[in-house]
Design a protein around this nucleic acid. Structure first.
Length: 799
RNA sequence: GCUUGUGUGGCGGAACUGGUAGACGCGCACGACUCAAAAUCGUGUAUCUAUGAUGUGAGGGUUCGAUUCCCUCCACAAGCACCA
C-alpha cells in the first residue's frame, strides 16, 4: 500500500478508537507531557514545531506502551497582534482568521500522526477559556496583586500601544521595529516583584536544565546590599541610595539620581537650574528613540545647583547630579558614586571633573589591574581590613546601629505591566465608576466578551480600539448601579499561556477553571518542552501565576513543571534562519507529501543534537525514507519463532536499552541510529524471526508510528503496537561473549585481540606480548610497566 | 562588557565514570543488476612526504593513556545589557 493511504488508515484508526485520549480516572501511573502550544499564524506549521512535537510524541508513545496514563494535549495560543493587524486591514473579525489558521494547523499536526489528545483541545481565544483567565485576574485584584499605576511605559508610536520591557527589547518595537518612546501612562500591573524570592527559591523544586535555571536566576537578578540615607543640607529631606558596596562610602565624591527622581519636584524651590533639569528629563525620555543599541554611550548629566547631600559617615558635602545612567525603576533611583572603583562613576567623574578618592588599595580604576577587593584605605574605621566581605559587614553593622542605613535585597525583576491597548486580547474585567472608582466585574458576569464589530483601528490617543465601541464601554456600576465605563485595555499575549496546562486537565469544566480532582490526579507537568526563547519570560510568568494560585489554595503545587527542556532551532540549508525573504523555508506539508510523515518524523529526530540548532538537509530526509523502506523490505525474510535470532540476541537487547534510555534523555538522534545499526545486522542474516521483527517495529513505533503498525499487521505479528507493551531487555544478554581488546605500546594502538568476555589480566598480558606487531615495537626495549584493564585495554610501557 | 554554551572528516553528527576517535546517516567514488536510466545491492571514503607518522579550535599541563580533567588564549552562537 502506498505511504499516504497507510498513514490515513492508522490516523483514522487512532481517532475512531480514541487511542490517545487520556482518562482522568485511572489506576495507571500518570505522566503529563506538555509541548508549547503554537500561535496559529497564517504561515502554517513550521518544521521547527515538527521537531519538538515529534520528539515528545515519541516519548508519549513509549510511555503509554510502558503502561502510563499519558496526558499529551494540544491547543492554540491564539490572541495576538498578527490576527489583529490582519483584521484591521480586511475589516473582518480576528476570530475568523484565527479559526481558519487553527484548521490549517490542526490538519497539519494530524497528518503527522502526532498522538495528541484532541478531545482536550481549546484556544485561549475561546470565551469559555478566557472566562477563567479573567476570573483569575479578579483573584489577583482581590489580593491586591493587580493594581493600577502610572508608570513610564514603553510606547510604540507606530502601533500606538504600550509595550512590555520584554516586547521593547533593544529600544525598538518587537513587532514593527519602530523606535520606542517613554511615556507616562496609567496601566494595570501584576505584582510579580513580590514573588521574586519565591520564584528564585522554587527553582529548587524543579528539574529544569541548568541553563534554564540560570536564565531565570539572571532575569530575577537578586542582589544584596544596603540602603543608605544621605541627608540634604538645611532640610529634613533624605536621599536614599541602594548600594552593594557600603564599604566604599568613604570614596563617595558625588551622587547621581535618575531624571525622574521625585526629589527634584520636592526641592524644586531650592533648585536654581530647575529648567535645565526639566530639559534634561525631556531629553532622556527621548533617548530611547535614538539608536539604543549604540554601546559605550557617552555619559551625560546635569549638576543640581541649590543643594548638597551629606555623607552620613564623613559628613562631607556631596554634590548631586542628574543622569540617565541611573534608572528610576531599579533600587531607589539614586546612587552614591564611587568613581575610584566603579567604571561608570569613573567615566562620569572624568567628564565632569569630579574628585576621585581610592578606598581600596590597588583597586584604582584607571589602572589595568582594577580590583574590587583589597585592603581598605582612606576609610576611617575600616582602614586595614583586607577583604570586602569583612569591610561590608563592618560598615553595614555600623550603619544599622546608627540608623544611617540597613541591609536590603533588590531584584531586577519588575512588576508585570499587564495592560495592552489592543482589541485582540482578553478584556480586563474591571469597571470604572465615577462614584465608586474601580469595581471588579462580578464573577457571575464573566466572561466579558469581545464585541463583534468590524473596525479595529487603534485610537489616536493610544486607547484600545474597544474605547470607541460604545456598546462595549458603557455599562452599569455593579456596586451602585449608576452609569459607568468598562476598562478597555486587554491583557497581554502572555496571559493565556500562563495557566493553559491546568485547563488541559479539565478543559470542558464550566463551573471551575479546573476541578480539584483533576488537579490532584495530574499534579505537576512531568515534562515541559519548549523553545529556549521562552526560558525567561513565559516560564517566569507561568511559574508566577501558578505560585499565586497555589497561595490562594487553588492548585496543589507551587511549582507547575517538573522537568523543562528546550530544543534547538532548525535553520535553512544555508545556515540562516528560515524566512520567506530568504527563500529557505521548508514546508512540512511538502515533506509529508513527498516522503511521508514517518520519514519526516524520523529525520527530524535524527537530524542532530536535539538541543542544538541544525541546518535542514533534504538529502538526509531522503536517507530516512530509505531506512524505512529497508525496514519494510526485511519483512520478506521473517520466519515464525518466538525467540531472537542467536546472532543478534545481544545486539537487540542492547538496542532495547539504548532506545529506551535515549528517548528519555533527549538523545533522539542516537535512538534512531541504534535502530539503523540493528537493521544493518538483521539484513546480514538469511532470515529473521518474528520476534526480531516485532521488536524492531515496537522500538521504531514511537518515531514512525504508521508504517510500523502496518507492517505489524501485514506480517500478523500480534496486537496493534500502540496497544502493546514496550520491550524489556534482558540484563544478562547485554554483553557479547567475545570482545575486542586494544593493545597499546606507549599509549599507541599496535594491535587488537579477540578474547572471550572476562578474560583475566594475566592471560591478556600474555596474549598482548605474543602479538607480532607488539613484539616489533618492544624489541630491544625494556618493559617499564604494563597496564591491563579487563575487557578494555592493554598498554605496554617501554623504554 | 557580563553570563552561559559550543568548536571533532566534504556535511549532520557519535564516543560509557579518561581506555581502539570518526558510530550512524548524507555526500562522493568504484562495482553489480540494466539496452540505458532510476531504484536497489555491494565495496571504499580523516590527513600526509604513507611498511610509517599526524590528527578532535590554538598553546601548555596532569596521566601508562586525554575529544573527555586543569591552566592560558582564539573563534562562533545565544541570553542579558549603564542593575548601582
Amino acid at each position: 500500500m502506498e505511504t499516504k493511504k497507510i498513514e490515513k488508515k492508522w490516523q483514522k484508526y487512532w481517532k475512531e478508537n480514541h487511542t490517545f485520549e487520556a482518562s482522568n480516572e485511572s489506576d495507571k501511573k500518570k505522566y503529563y507531557i506538555l509541548v508549547e502550544f503554537p500561535y496559529p499564524s497564517g504561515a502554517g506549521l513550521h518544521v521547527g514545531h515538527v521537531r519538538s512535537y515529534s520528539a515528545l510524541d515519541s516519548v508519549a508513545r513509549m510511555k503509554r506502551m510502558q503502561g502510563y496514563n499519558v496526558l499529551f494535549p494540544m491547543g492554540w495560543d491564539a490572541f495576538g497582534a498578527p490576527a489583529e493587524q490582519y483584521a484591521i486591514k480586511n475589516h473582518i473579525h480576528p476570530s475568523i482568521a484565527v479559526k481558519e489558521n487553527i484548521k490549517t494547523f490542526k490538519g497539519q499536526l494530524q497528518s503527522l500522526g502526532l498522538s495528541f489528545d484532541w478531545s482536550r483541545e481549546f484556544a485561549t481565544t475561546d470565551p469559555k477559556y478566557y472566562k477563567w483567565t479573567q476570573w483569575q485576574f479578579l483573584k489577583f485584584y482581590e489580593k491586591g496583586l493587580a493594581y493600577k499605576a502610572t508608570v513610564p511605559v514603553n510606547w510604540c508610536p507606530n502601533c500606538k500601544t504600550v509595550l512590555s520591557n520584554e516586547d521593547a527589547s533593544g529600544g525598538v518595537c518587537e513587532r514593527c521595529g519602530t523606535g520606542v518612546v517613554q511615556k507616562e501612562k496609567s496601566q494595570w500591573m501584576l505584582g510579580m516583584k513580590k514573588y521574586a524570592e519565591k520564584l528564585l527559591d522554587g527553582l529548587k523544586d524543579t528539574e529544569f536544565q541548568e541553563k534554564t535555571k540560570l536564565a531565570q536566576i539572571n532575569w530575577i537578578g537578586k542582589s544584596t546590599g544596603a540602603e543608605v540615607d544621605f541627608l540634604i543640607d538645611h532640610s529634613d529631606e533624605k536621599l536614599k541610595v541602594y548600594t552593594t558596596r557600603p564599604d566604599t562610602i568613604f570614596g563617595v565624591t558625588f551622587m547621581v539620581i535618575a531624571p525622574e527622581h521625585p526629589i527634584i519636584d520636592k526641592l524644586g524651590t531650592r533648585i536654581l537650574n530647575l529648567d535645565e533639569l526639566k530639559e534634561y528629563k525631556e531629553y532622556a525620555s527621548h533617548k530611547n528613540e535614538m539608536e539604543r543599541t549604540q554601546l559605550n554611550k557617552d555619559k551625560t548629566g546635569v549638576k543640581i545647583l541649590g543643594f548638597y547631600a551629606i555623607n552620613p559617615i564623613t559628613k562631607d558635602k556631596i554634590p548631586v547630579y542628574v543622569s540617565d545612567y541611573v534608572m528610576m525603576n531599579y533600587g531607589t533611583g539614586a546612587i552614591m558614586a564611587v568613581p575610584a572603583h566603579d567604571e561608570r562613576d569613573y567615566e562620569f567623574a572624568k567628564k565632569y571633573g569630579i574628585d576621585i578618592i581610592p578606598v581600596i588599595e590597588g583597586g584604582d580604576i584607571n589602572k589595568e589591574a582594577y580590583v574590587g577587593d583589597g585592603v581598605m584605605i582612606n576609610s576611617g574605621f575600616l582602614n586595614g581590613i583586607d577583604n570586602k566581605r569583612d569591610a561590608i559587614f563592618e560598615m553595614t553593622e555600623y550603619m544599622e546601629k546608627n540608623a544611617i542605613g540597613k541591609r536590603c535585597v533588590k531584584y531586577r525583576l519588575q512588576d508585570w505591566v499587564f495592560s495592552r491597548q489592543r482589541f485582540w486580547g482578553e478584556p480586563i474585567p474591571m469597571i470604572n465608576c465615577p462614584t465608586c472608582g474601580w469595581v471588579p466585574v462580578p464573577y457571575s458576569d464573566l466572561p466579558v466578551k469581545l464585541p463583534n464589530v468590524a473596525s479595529y483601528e487603534p485610537t489616536e490617543t493610544g486607547e484600545s480600539p474597544l474605547a470607541s465601541i460604545d456598546e462595549f464601554v458603557n455599562c452599569k456600576c455593579p456596586k451602585c448601579g449608576g452609569p459607568a465605563k468598562r476598562e478597555t485595555d486587554t491583557m497581554p499575549n502572555w496571559a493565556g499561556s500562563s495557566w493553559y496546562w491546568l485547563r488541559y486537565m479539565d478543559p470542558n469544566n464550566d463551573s471551575e477553571f479546573v476541578s480539584q480532582d483533576a488537579l490532584n490526579y495530574w499534579g505537576k507537568v512531568d515534562w515541559y518542552n519548549g523553545g529556549m526563547e521562552h526560558a525567561t519570560r513565559h516560564l517566569l510568568y507561568a511559574r508566577f501565576w501558578n505560585n499565586f494560585l497555589y497561595d490562594q489554595g487553588l492548585v496543589p503545587n507551587a511549582e507547575p513543571f517538573k522537568l523543562r527542556t528546550s530544543h534547538g532551532m532548525i535553520l535553512g540549508s544555508n545556515g540562516e534562519k528560515m524566512s520567506k525573504s530568504k527563500g529557505n523555508v521548508i514546508n512540512p506539508n511538502d515533506c509529508v507529501d513527498e516522503f511521508g510523515a514517518d520519514a519526516l518524523r524520523v529525520y527530524e529526530m535524527f537530524i542532530g543534537d536535539y538541543e542544538k540548532e541544525v541546518n535542514w538537509s533534504t538529502d538526509s530526509l531522503k536517507g530516512c525514507r530509505k531506512f524505512l523502506d529497508r525496514v519494510e523490505r526485511i519483512g520478506e525474510k521473517v520466519r515464525e519463532s518466538n525467540r531472537f535470532s542467536k546472532e543478534i540476541e545481544v545486539l537487540i537487547n542492547k538496542t532495547i536499552k539504548k532506545v529506551t534510555d535515549d528517548l528519555e534523555n533527549l538523545k533522539y538522534n542516537t535512538a534512531v541510529s541504534s535502530l539503523m545499526i540493528l537493521l544493518n545486522e538483521l539484513e546480514k542474516l538469511d532470515n529473521i524471526t518474528t520476534k526480531d521483527y516485532r521488536t524492531l517495529l515496537l522500538l521504531l513505533n514511537p518515531m514512525a508510528p504508521h508504517i510500523t503498525e502496518e507492517l505489524n499487521e501485514i506480517y500478523n505479528l500480534g496486537d496493534h503496537l500502540c496497544e502493546s507493551s514496550w520491550p524489556k531487555y534482558n540484563k544478562e544478554k547485554l554483553i557479547d561473549e567475545t570482545i575486542t581488546i586494544a593493545i597499546q605500546v606507549n599509549g599507541k594502538l599496535r594491535g587488537t585481540i579477540e578474547v572471550s568476555n572476562d578474560t583475566d589480566e594475566e592471560s591478556l598480558k600474555k596474549l598482548a606480548l605474543a602479538n607480532d606487531n607488539v613484539k616489533k615495537h618492544i624489541e630491544g626495549k625494556t618493559i617499564v610497566k604494563t597496564i591491563v584493564i579487563k575487557n578494555k585495554i592493554v598498554n605496554i610501557v617501554v623504554k
